[in-house]
Design a protein around this nucleic acid. Structure first.
Lengths: 216, 216
DNA sequence: CCTACCGATCGGTAGG
DNA sequence: CCTACCGATCGGTAGG
């Protein structure tokens, strides 16, 4: 349907969602500080002051972007969690989802939230991050423990929360923006397609040779 | 010994090393873009233009900081690698060293190198990073394979380079700057003191319950 | 949603 | 190593 048939408020909503979508991509790629409000506006075909009709300030826009991102992520992760598959299989799906749909490096997001935002914005995004990403993944680890396929904290010394953070940290390697030619580092990450196998395998079985460690 | 007894060139060297030390700490904590040259100068008790007597520009300072950092890291890691201990034990020492002495979040450094620097600075630091951090840790993984305690790439599907990057990524969780009150996230990372046990344990043995997975 | 503009701050230079 | 200053860019506002 052509844009000219929409009402004015429809225009506003469409513009707002364009800004959100554009800003999300830029913030994900480059982080809060490196993305100026003018670059966001340019990418939307707007002037920079126009952004301030839709969002109070840059922080407000960033918070809105991240909240929407995390709400979508939560829905997707809970859909994955309810599949009738093994915990291991579902964690692989989580990796695949996060790599393809949530391209935001989780350590960069944590850095931005902690270093660039006010205490109130920080509190809002902390909540959304816990609920939208940490909790759904952590419950997969907890389910693995209850099923007896994963060691509990007394046995392994690792809480499900720590396991979740470590799990997500392992993703960041595959989320970094490739650059024109970063020499050997880029060349040294050839297994992008099998990231879910690698990460979940290490998380479950590690790299030890069982013939030398399993029978002690 | 009082400063007034030093020669002029001694002054210059001392100032240069003060700048390097100060800038290192600030860049580590906050990243390239968030640290202005004026803040570095202020922290050194200098005016901002004085920095340009010692370094061509901000990038040049950043490169010098990181190169020095990586040279020290390489020396320390190679000392650890030559100890007469198991690969597992030496990897724990690597974790402890990196957490206490190289407080720079490795994903933040990669981000800065890729996003903020010119191609030539990028090439220089890529080289230093490969030589100073990746290579020493990777050779520990390779030694583990040769000793038969770790699976090789054919067996695990994970190259030693990938293992090294994942290993370092797991550190970032413990390297993030704590903030005044970041709610549950800060509270959810209580095992800072045992980071080396947790990380190396997962890297070797994973979290699977061996009674349900080892005999398949 | 635009034009026009603000003060602040950035990296960097001139000149001594 | 300083003072003084540059153009560029930042986030944000005024006024329509």
């Amino acid at each position: 349907m052509p844009r000219s048939q929409r009402r004015h408020s429809g225009y506003e909503e469409e513009t707002r969602s364009t800004i959100l979508r554009t800003a999300q991509q830029l913030f994900m790629e480059q982080g809060y500080r490196a993305v100026s409000t003018r670059r966001i506006a340019d990418a939307c075909g707007l002037t920079q002051p126009a952004l301030y009709h839709h969002f109070a300030d840059k922080q407000d826009l960033y918070v809105a972007v991240m909240k929407e991102n995390l709400v979508q992520t939560q829905a997707a992760l809970e859909r994955i969690a309810h599949r009738d598959e093994s915990v291991e299989e579902r964690l692989k799906r989580v990796v695949l989802y996060l790599l393809s749909n949530v391209q935001h490096d989780h350590t960069q997001m944590m850095h931005d939230i902690r270093q660039e935002l006010s205490a109130s914005s920080r509190a809002i995004l902390d909540e959304a991050f816990q609920t939208g990403m940490i909790a759904p993944i952590r419950s997969l680890f907890e389910e693995g423990i209850q099923q007896g396929v994963l060691l509990n904290q007394q046995q392994s010394g690792v809480s499900t929360t720590t396991a979740t953070h470590l799990f997500m940290n392992m993703l960041s390697q595959y989320l970094m923006q490739p650059t024109q030619h970063f020499g050997s580092i880029q060349h040294d990450i050839p297994e992008r397609e099998r990231a879910e196998e690698v990460i979940v395998h290490i998380m479950f079985h590690g790299l030890a040779n069982v013939h030398s460690t399993c029978h002690n």
